[in-house]
């Protein structure tokens, strides 16, 4: 058994390798490649997760679980872009780990249903494009004027690409509430922009 495992070639990599190259090395069992990936992505992942959860311990635990999941599933990554950037893939894993970390922590009433596949409420890519340039436009002011509940619902379903069920777990409210909040938030935004 050990013979076969050792015979698998680890692709070359260094600190400047693309995410895709690092991930294929990780898939072949290179722990050093995971360290490079961790150093590269942990800072922004940590910052972004902290915007979703106020408890730093839960954020750290979710981040650890996310990198462990990457370690085990590195081979399932298929690069979408030419530069082999894996940020979006890694973020999907991290936010889902945060959702299940919050669920584990005692929100037992939510139930143990497995995470579902992608089913975003809105078309994430199109709205991402809008979000990239909002900071000075009217949309920025409109977003800042939203009540926190409505804004968090928008953030979870559109920006983070979570399913309604996952968003419900992250926010700690029933699924139906998430749906109505997203609808109300969109209506409010439309009102303010027209």
């Amino acid at each position: 058994m050990k013979l076969f495992r050792r015979a698998r070639r680890v692709p070359d990599y260094d600190a400047r390798s693309s995410d895709a190259e690092l991930l294929s090395a990780i898939g072949a069992g290179a722990a050093d490649a995971l360290e490079i990936l961790h150093r590269r992505h942990a800072p922004w992942l940590g910052a972004r997760l902290r915007y979703r959860c106020a408890d730093p311990d839960v954020v750290d635990a979710a981040l650890q679980d996310a990198f462990l999941s990457i370690w085990r599933n590195a081979r399932t990554f298929t690069p979408r872009t030419a530069d082999g950037d894996a940020a979006a893939w890694i973020w999907t894993i991290a936010i889902r780990q945060l959702v299940s970390a919050l669920r584990r922590r005692g929100n037992k009433w939510i139930g143990d249903a497995a995470l579902e596949s992608y089913e975003p409420v809105g078309d994430a890519s199109a709205e991402d494009l809008v979000l990239v340039g909002i900071e000075h436009g009217p949309l920025g002011a409109a977003l800042n004027n939203l009540s926190p509940e409505l804004r968090l619902a928008i953030q979870a379903t559109i920006l983070d690409g979570l399913t309604v069920r996952e968003a419900a777990q992250l926010l700690g409210v029933p699924e139906g509430t998430v749906k109505t909040r997203v609808m109300r938030a969109k209506a409010r935004l439309r009102e303010q922009l027209t």
């Binding site: 922004w44 900071e135 920025g140 977003l143 800042n144 920006l159």
Partner: peptide
């Protein structure tokens, strides 16, 4: 990184960071 951006700005920054390796590397930790 310190959580001081306002909400619209933070959302915008997040959408940008996901696409821009340069800014991503610039997030301090």
């Amino acid at each position: 990184a310190d959580g001081r951006l306002d909400h619209a700005m933070a959302m915008s920054a997040e959408a940008h960071i996901l696409d821009c390796p340069r800014c991503r590397a610039g997030v301090p930790a």
